[in-house]
């Protein structure tokens, strides 16, 4: 009884049987009305198309609007389609290069710009700039950078790695695209990790320093554990982003050479807008969604245990 009274006094639980005041109800209604436009836009432009796109996977949809039920036929085709499996392999390979490199670059830059020094804000802004630069523009520039005779192949030649145009080489095209992905994404990760680093108590690091811990030990045993939730968040976001790699592929390689950079989203786009096979395109989209979800759950199991 005493416990119940205490809880009520603190206002942590509503009194039993008591109804919300008209004022609180009006507040709630006003809040909902404010949320309504955004919610409606989300329903119409995000959720609706996503559901419709997924449903398309079960139909043979013609441009004019006629749709014929196909059941699982599109998914059966997907299962046996070598282009789909090749695109999946390319997508996973891209993610394998891009995700760890982006996270490592984000972490490195966050640690470098963590401490206040002269011009730190300028550097943070510069590092964030690629995030807000259009990927189409980025793609056009990097297409030149990686071209035969471009700056990259020239530098590679100087260090004895040959003058190969990476975008025209089946082996090097994915690392080249991943580098562009890292360049355009690390600023975002840096910002997230900088915010997380603000929450790491300075006293802990100072105490460890006094106990004789070196920089690596301080990072490994004090800073890193505190960053786990942010790193988990970044891993999920970056994996999702890399599974959706499209803009740079579209601008720089169009999936080539010889399908070496033909990603799942590029396949989805071509099936839909080039070949007008919207049903099959929808099936690829649904498969991609399931794959992203499964990978996010696995990441949650491995990385997010304590978050």
């Amino acid at each position: 009884m005493a416990t119940q009274l205490t809880v009520r006094k603190r206002g942590l639980a509503p009194p039993e049987g008591r109804r919300r005041s008209p004022l609180a109800r009006r507040d709630a209604v006003a809040g909902m009305l404010f949320v309504l436009p955004c919610f409606a836009l989300f329903l119409v432009f995000r959720f609706g198309p996503a559901v419709a796109g997924s449903l398309l996977g079960f139909f043979d949809y013609q441009v004019g609007g006629s749709a014929k039920w196909r059941g699982l036929a599109n998914f059966r085709r997907l299962w046996h389609d070598p282009v789909f499996w090749s695109a999946l392999k390319v997508t996973l390979l891209y993610a394998l290069f891009a995700v760890p490199t982006t996270i490592a670059a984000s972490l490195g830059m966050a640690l470098l710009t963590r401490r206040g020094f002269r011009g730190v804000r300028f550097f943070r802004s510069i590092f964030f700039l690629p995030v807000i630069t259009s990927l189409v523009l980025t793609g056009a520039i990097f297409r030149w950078v990686f071209s035969a005779g471009g700056p990259w192949s020239t530098v590679m030649g100087w260090v004895g790695l040959g003058h190969t145009a990476w975008l025209e080489d089946t082996t090097m095209v994915i690392p080249a695209l991943a580098l562009v992905g890292v360049w355009s994404r690390f600023g975002y990760g840096m910002l997230i990790l900088l915010a997380a680093l603000q929450n790491v108590p300075r006293e802990l690091e100072e105490a460890a320093t006094m106990d004789g811990a070196g920089p690596w030990q301080r990072f490994r045993y004090i800073v890193f554990p505190q960053l786990r939730p942010a790193l988990f968040f970044l891993a999920v976001i970056e994996t999702t982003m890399s599974f959706q790699a499209f803009d740079s592929v579209y601008m720089m390689t169009s999936g080539g050479p010889a399908h070496a950079s033909y990603t799942l989203v590029f396949d989805l786009y071509e099936q839909g807008f080039k070949y007008m096979d919207f049903g099959y395109s929808g099936a690829i989209g649904l498969a991609l969604f399931v794959m992203t979800l499964v990978v996010a759950l696995i990441q949650r199991l491995i990385l997010g245990r304590d978050t």
Partner: peptide, 20 residues
């Protein structure tokens, strides 16, 4: 004041939806 807020929110929602 609260009624005005609610009316404004409704008007904004209406205007946005009308745009669709």
């Amino acid at each position: 004041h609260r009624s005005a807020i609610a009316a404004t929110a409704l008007a904004v929602a209406g205007a946005l939806l009308a745009g669709c």
